[in-house]
Design a protein around this nucleic acid. Structure first.
Length: 365
RNA sequence: GGAGAGAUGGCAGAGUGGUCGAUUGCGGCGGUCUUGAAAACCGCUGUACCGAGAGGUACCGGGGGUUCGAAUCCCUCUCUCUCCGCCA
């Protein structure tokens, strides 16, 4: 969320930057500036009254000590009107403040200077490609058929036990899943990431801490008995490690990695691209997170992009890295790289990894 | 599920209605001493917001209340710990 003072001091910059994201911020920015000024005036008036009130209260304490009972009564009378004025000012302040907050959340994060202008997927910038495209015969099978043929993943069994989107990995399928998790964790550790095993259920505060709540309320599995949420990504518990804590500047960047199962309701996505492993309710993911100094966050992002590139290289996958254009970026991001891996049998690129640098300054893999 | 205790500054831990934004210790920063370091000693050391500044306001788990005045009293919520019970 953009800082009010920043908006006030740099209105043109905000408008110009958000235009890259195809967002017309002019009206909101103007309103914000006017309200912000008004809010500060009210705050000032209110605080003058409060200062007076505090002063009188201290005097009363002194008078009581000295036993000047009549003066005490006199002073108390003065506070009656002050109290009422303070109440009115505070009411006004709360009203303006709420309106301001409501406007503030409507402004997206500013894009980095690297972000290309553009509308949608076709305007994204390809920054790197690698690997060799496999040349498959015309009758090549998609992964869900192969998985069934070799009994690696049993989707039907998952349906019986739980429901669609909860596959059962079997035999070599289960082993390769475990091997990949180990591979990613081991690689991350070698790059200086601290491995953690976080809880898979988080409380409400953690949900808000990473912005999953209230935004994606319906996308998370929720246990209403204890008011806990199943994590949609290890990003949630891992970044919440740092919620409300002060870290030493010399310790930055702090690099953390975690494997977790991830749970997503994927409400509303039925019907398209849901076959096989394309869209699951439960899946495995190894996350990397860096906590960096704001001035160094783009360096951290670069570091992570380069690192992930080495992973797809090592796995020998055909891939490309995209720098998303303004129109294709998310609300909170300031710079996003997508790693797309080519899926030959499906004849399309699948998004494998999304790395973003944003307000939360989190990145995932 | 039952009973009890607790939540205070980076950490530990005082404070039960009036100069308490908060004693003290640790940590951190600066200095004296030292060839250097350690020790010792001295000083400084929370955050946010408003203000050109002086300064002001708010914050002692969250919210509400009583009062001229609340870390302190009342109500309520949340969380943590201890003991008992139950349990895959």
């Amino acid at each position: 969320m953009l800082n009010l003072k920043f908006i006030q001091d740099n209105p043109d910059l905000v408008i110009e930057k958000l235009a890259v994201k195809r967002f017309d911020a002019r009206a909101i920015v103007e309103k914000v500036i006017a309200l912000y000024k008004r809010r500060n005036e009210v705050q000032n008036d209110s605080e003058i009254q409060k200062a007076e009130m505090n002063k009188i209260s201290k005097e009363i304490g002194q008078l009581i000590k000295e036993g000047k009972q009549s003066d005490v009564e006199l002073a108390k009378q003065k506070t009656v009107e002050l109290k009422e004025q303070i109440r009115i000012f505070e009411e006004q302040f709360a009203l303006i403040d709420a309106e301001l907050a409501q406007l503030q959340v409507q402004l997206p994060n500013l894009p980095s200077t690297l972000v290309p202008k553009g509308k949608g997927a076709e305007d994204n910038e390809v920054v790197a490609t690698g690997g060799t495209m496999p040349n498959l015969p015309a009758d090549a099978k998609p992964h869900w058929e192969l998985a069934a043929q070799y009994d690696l993943i049993d989707f039907e069994l998952g349906v019986k036990i739980t429901g669609a989107g909860f596959p059962v990995y079997k035999g070599f399928g289960a082993r390769i899943q475990r091997a990949l998790i180990n591979f990613f964790l081991d690689q991350a550790r070698e790059k200086g990431y601290l491995e953690v095993q976080p809880p898979y259920l988080v409380n409400e505060a953690s949900g808000f801490g990473t912005g999953q709540l209230p935004d994606k309320e319906g996308q998370m599995y929720h246990d209403s008995t204890d008011n806990l949420y199943l994590i949609p990504t290890a990003e949630v518990p891992v970044t919440n490690i740092f919620r409300d804590v002060i870290v030493e500047g010399k310790d930055l960047p702090i690099k953390t990695t975690a494997y977790s199962a991830c749970f997503r309701r994927e409400a509303g996505s039925y019907g398209k691209d849901v076959r096989g492993l394309n869209r699951l309710h439960q899946f495995d993911k190894v996350e990397i997170v860096q906590v960096a100094h704001p001035d160094k966050s783009y360096e951290s992002l670069k570091d992570m992009v380069d690192y992930v590139q080495t992973l797809v290289e090592k796995l020998g996958l055909p891939y490309r890295i995209l720098r998303l254009c303004g129109g294709d970026m998310s609300f909170t991001s300031s710079l996003t790289y997508d790693f797309e891996v080519w899926s030959a049998a499906q004849e399309r690129a699948r998004l494998l990894i999304k790395l973003q640098c944003g307000l939360k300054r989190t990145s995932s893999c």
